Amino acid sequence: MPRKPNATLVGEALRARLEEISQRTGYLTNIAHVYGPLDKVPDKADMPYVLIRVAGDVRTSTAAFQATRLRTFELEAVFRKTAGPADLDGIHVDLLRALGFGQDRPERKFPGLIDDEDEATPRYASAGETTHSNTLTIGVTYVESYN
């Protein structure tokens, strides 16, 4: 079986890390499901859930047949409109904690996470909408070989 590209492995590891978010494991939020970029979210999906999207991927340096790349992910947590500001703020904390931000154990940090910059964008339901969301944008560096 051919190897998977490192970008794919980063995405799979990110999804696995986010699937750990649960109140039983010490988080503020109980995530019902994590959906990848090609997954179809069911119409009546349990909430809250997280959508992982790739926002971009740029080469930052090159050495021989390898390149260091920066992949930007959008992690959108979707809640019913009955959720309050504390829920949307809590998921921001939980997503960063799940990635190892602020942890004193280096092995807990998500490999390649750019931890000095992230952005959270809350969106509150307006008339006729049924969900709120908070989207966290993060960057992850990785190395890809092209030989």
Results as ranks from 00 to 15, higher is better:
residue 1 M to T: 08
residue 2 P to T: 14
residue 2 P to A: 15
residue 3 R to I: 11
residue 4 K to M: 12
residue 4 K to F: 11
residue 4 K to R: 12
residue 5 P to K: 11
residue 7 A to D: 14
residue 9 L to T: 11
residue 10 V to I: 07
residue 11 G to A: 06
residue 11 G to K: 11
residue 12 E to Y: 07
residue 13 A to H: 12
residue 13 A to C: 12
residue 14 L to T: 07
residue 15 R to W: 11
residue 15 R to A: 10
residue 18 L to Y: 03
residue 19 E to W: 04
residue 24 R to L: 15
residue 25 T to Q: 10
residue 25 T to W: 14
residue 27 Y to S: 12
residue 27 Y to A: 12
residue 27 Y to Q: 06
residue 27 Y to L: 07
residue 28 L to Y: 04
residue 30 N to K: 10
residue 33 H to P: 04
residue 34 V to E: 00
residue 34 V to K: 03
residue 35 Y to A: 01
residue 36 G to W: 01
residue 37 P to R: 03
residue 37 P to L: 01
residue 37 P to T: 02
residue 37 P to Q: 03
residue 38 L to C: 01
residue 40 K to F: 04
residue 41 V to M: 02
residue 41 V to F: 00
residue 41 V to K: 01
residue 41 V to Y: 00
residue 42 P to W: 10
residue 44 K to L: 04
residue 46 D to P: 08
residue 47 M to C: 10
residue 47 M to W: 08
residue 48 P to L: 04
residue 50 V to H: 02
residue 50 V to T: 07
residue 51 L to N: 01
residue 52 I to R: 00
residue 52 I to K: 02
residue 56 G to S: 12
residue 56 G to D: 13
residue 56 G to A: 10
residue 59 R to I: 12
residue 59 R to F: 13
residue 60 T to M: 10
residue 65 F to Q: 15
residue 65 F to N: 13
residue 66 Q to K: 15
residue 69 R to E: 13
residue 69 R to Y: 06
residue 70 L to F: 10
residue 71 R to G: 07
residue 74 E to P: 04
residue 78 V to H: 04
residue 79 F to M: 02
residue 81 K to Q: 05
residue 83 A to D: 01
residue 86 A to S: 15
residue 87 D to K: 14
residue 88 L to P: 01
residue 89 D to C: 02
residue 90 G to F: 05
residue 93 V to R: 05
residue 96 L to F: 04
residue 96 L to P: 05
residue 98 A to H: 13
residue 99 L to F: 11
residue 104 D to K: 14
residue 104 D to P: 06
residue 105 R to W: 13
residue 107 E to D: 10
residue 111 P to A: 11
residue 111 P to W: 13
residue 112 G to D: 13
residue 113 L to S: 14
residue 114 I to A: 12
residue 114 I to Y: 09
residue 115 D to F: 11
residue 116 D to P: 03
residue 119 E to T: 15
residue 119 E to F: 08
residue 119 E to G: 09
residue 120 A to Q: 00
residue 121 T to V: 09
residue 122 P to G: 01
residue 122 P to N: 01
residue 123 R to Y: 03
residue 123 R to N: 02
residue 124 Y to F: 05
residue 124 Y to R: 01
residue 124 Y to C: 00
residue 125 A to T: 06
residue 125 A to K: 03
residue 127 A to R: 04
residue 128 G to D: 01
residue 131 T to K: 00
residue 131 T to P: 02
residue 133 S to Q: 00
residue 135 T to Y: 10
residue 136 L to I: 09
residue 137 T to F: 08
residue 137 T to N: 09
residue 137 T to C: 06
residue 139 G to E: 14
residue 140 V to M: 12
residue 141 T to C: 08
residue 142 Y to W: 15
residue 142 Y to P: 09
residue 144 E to Q: 08
residue 145 S to I: 05
residue 146 Y to K: 03
